[in-house]
């Protein structure tokens, strides 16, 4: 069972930033969350996946086929939603449908309008007049209407209210009822990813800092607020020192059960890795 997307040793050098040997896969039937602070490299990874930028090393494969060798039909199997939703703004949904019909051989008008109805999007208003949330929902509807098996979403829920975010989560869950589908979603709203994702890849400073099954990661780590010197140093992953104390991200299995620890969240892991220090 091949990975829908495979990234091997992806490397890209910019002036002040390097994406350094990033490797991970998006297995069939799974949702992979790409998390990291702004500037960590998430967008560079997504742009490399889409062939929008050249890379300095590594391989990108879709269903086992290298990016450079994908035919037009194969490309349509991947739906894309970027955060700067660049839809033609002077058209309404009817006209957009016509544009898309000509772009995609697998365009499914029925599906597109069923989705826009579900999202309560007006057909006769110019998309340029849509709110941010409406634009995002339009982009998602479009990405789901050309027979895509894999979805790549870059910050699809930024700037959206909780209700809109929940609606989008719902759509993604529906998409994943089919075990042949897969989703790669990049976000810094970790609470959304915490629900939906099966795997997370945490990018920090252009490298993969932590990755694995989401449940396993959240069980592996814990937050400890007691006296850090009481702990086995090998158990301490990162420390955040405060004025009146310190908190540590620890490996739960290396902490005696009697020492009280708190459950971690993806946000904790991110903050400890970014702002914490090693012992």
């Amino acid at each position: 069972m091949k990975n829908k997307i495979e990234i091997k040793n992806l490397t890209k050098h910019y002036g002040g930033f390097t994406l350094d040997n990033v490797s991970f896969g998006v297995p069939r039937g799974s949702v992979v969350g790409l998390i990291g602070e702004n500037g960590a490299g998430k967008s560079t990874i997504i742009k490399s996946l889409l062939g929008v930028i050249n890379t300095d090393g590594g391989e990108i494969l879709f269903d086992g086929v290298p990016l450079g060798r994908l035919g037009k039909n194969q490309r349509q199997l991947t739906g894309v939603v970027l955060d700067d939703v660049s839809l033609p703004s002077a058209v309404n949904l009817r006209e957009l449908n016509t544009v898309m019909k000509n772009m995609f051989s697998r365009w499914d008008e029925q599906t597109f309008f069923a989705l826009t109805e579900r999202f309560r999007l007006p057909r006769d208003k110019k998309t340029g007049e849509f709110s941010k949330g409406m634009k995002m929902k339009t982009a998602i509807a479009a990405a789901l209407s050309h027979g895509a098996e894999t979805l790549i979403l870059d910050e699809p829920t930024s700037g959206l209210d909780p209700v809109a975010r929940d609606e989008i989560l719902d759509i993604l869950y529906d998409f994943m009822q089919n075990s042949g589908h897969a989703v790669l979603i990049s976000s810094h709203i970790t609470s959304d990813l915490e629900k939906l994702c099966d795997y997370v890849v945490f990018i920090h400073g252009g490298k993969v800092a932590v990755s694995g099954e989401k449940d396993a990661l959240l069980e592996e780590y814990a937050v400890y607020g007691g006296n850090i010197s009481d702990l086995d140093p090998a158990a301490v992953v990162r420390v955040r020192r405060r004025n009146y104390g310190a908190d540590a991200l620890v490996k739960r299995s290396m902490i005696p059960p009697s020492f009280g620890t708190e459950k971690t969240t993806l946000e904790d892991i991110m903050l400890f890795f970014v702002k914490g220090e090693k012992l």
Partner: peptide, 19 residues
């Protein structure tokens, strides 16, 4: 329920329901 529909219902990962 299928593992996927339960995952959707509870808003969790399919790996959890599968386990």
């Amino acid at each position: 329920p299928t593992i996927r529909s339960l995952a959707k219902d509870l808003r969790i990962s399919v790996i959890t329901t599968s386990r």
